[in-house]
Simulated assay, not measured.
Amino acid sequence: MNKRITIKQIAKALNVSISTVSKALNDSYEISDETKKKIKEYAKFHHYKPNTLALSLQNKKTKTIGIIIPNILSHFFAKVLSGIEKVAAEQGYNIITCITNESYDKEKHTIETLSNGTIDGFIACISEETLKLGKFDHFNNVIAEGTPIVLYDRVHKDIVCDKVVIDNVKTAYKATRFLMRSKCDNIALISTIDGLNVGKFRAKGYEKALTKYGIEPNKDLIIRLENNEHLKERIEHMIDNHKVDGIFTIDETSAAIAVQVLNARNIKIPKDVSIIGFTNGILSKHSVIPLTTVNQFGVKIGEQAAIRLINKLENKIDFDDIRTEIIRTELIERDSTKKLYIKF
């Protein structure tokens, strides 16, 4: 007996996406008549039949949501999870939380395992390894099979689903502009998340702000790494060899290490150097010098992601209604910058 042909095999044979095949077989208006005809004829010729067991599992509600978190040690992700859990509990949903530890294999295995009828939908943040590999079939396959996904924070254009994010470019632009308004002329950028798209977007916002105000970005004042390795040495070299009066760090760890380096050299914060960090986590609040920082509103991101997903599960929103919601940010002024009282 021949093995049943799948949507995935049809997509590969015709060099189209799984989503396109699914929509064509369901006669979606989004697919051209020519493409529909080609897909339907191929499916008919190869005796394609929908997997009725899978469909029945899809249609059976578990009132459970799968939550994918790349790093549980992150204060930001803990806040997002808190927001998701709050809304899920209010709406009578349970959650299954899975930690990928930034692994593509673990993320893929988790999504494929839970999508067998264990959960009704996913709220996920893409792992660092997945973004580097650019492999997103495990997300797209689940979506094509009718399981909704809402991505938060780290997203990608090749995954067509609902997303809840901040405007990283705009936020970094405003933070850098704040430093310029506080009379900082030599503003450094420090990042240990340059392997992530959010890190690249924040670096872009920094450079955009400098260029907007007629300042050529100085490569000697830019540290862009993919992890914390050798970060302290790089900051020490920059401070010792170049004039710096402002630092914008686009992750929280970088800010804390920058403070350590400045303190070791008896450089006064913010009199000599002002610092702005990102995330507004525990390190920012309880640093030796409390840090001015960007608040991403992690709880709000989690709440909105959960609301969006549950509304789809409750058929309050059409499955094909795909949106990206942008959550506002704010700058929380503390002791690491001069007081300007300028609205962020």
Rank of each mutant, 00 (worst) to 15 (best):
K132Q: 08
S284K: 12
D153C: 10
L53Q: 10
N168G: 12
V294W: 02
L73R: 13
Y173P: 00
L313R: 04
V169F: 13
V259T: 04
Y29A: 03
S254I: 15
N94T: 09
K79I: 03
K285H: 12
A256L: 01
N280H: 11
I68Q: 02
T211N: 09
A256N: 02
D120K: 10
D33R: 12
I317E: 15
I289R: 02
K163W: 06
D153G: 01
N263G: 04
V87A: 14
K312E: 11
A264P: 01
K3L: 13
T324R: 10
T100A: 10
R334F: 11
N280R: 15
Y341P: 03
C184N: 08
E229V: 08
K108F: 04
Q296N: 14
D33L: 00
D162N: 07
V169W: 00
I111F: 11
K338Y: 03
N15E: 15
T52W: 09
A172H: 05
V198G: 01
Q91Y: 12
T97P: 04
G246N: 03
T113I: 01
G121T: 07
G302S: 13
G146K: 03
V16G: 09
I327P: 03
L131Y: 00
V165S: 00
K86M: 04
F76I: 09
L262R: 06
S28F: 06
K183L: 07
Y341T: 07
V142P: 10
G302E: 13
Q91M: 09
A306P: 14
K40S: 07
I143H: 07
H75R: 08
G246C: 14
I322F: 11
F297D: 00
S182H: 05
K79N: 06
F201H: 14
Q304C: 09
P70M: 08
M238D: 09
Y48I: 11
L196G: 07
L14I: 15
K243H: 06
I342P: 05
N71R: 13
N59M: 01
R234K: 15
Y206G: 08
S287H: 08
T176A: 13
G302T: 11
H230F: 09
S254T: 06
A43M: 01
N2Q: 12
K38E: 13
I317S: 10
K49L: 13
L283E: 00
V21R: 15
V155G: 05
E41S: 08
T118M: 04
T97G: 02
K3P: 13
I317P: 04
L221D: 06
F178T: 11
I159W: 02
I267D: 08
R224E: 13
K79P: 06
V165M: 01
T118W: 02
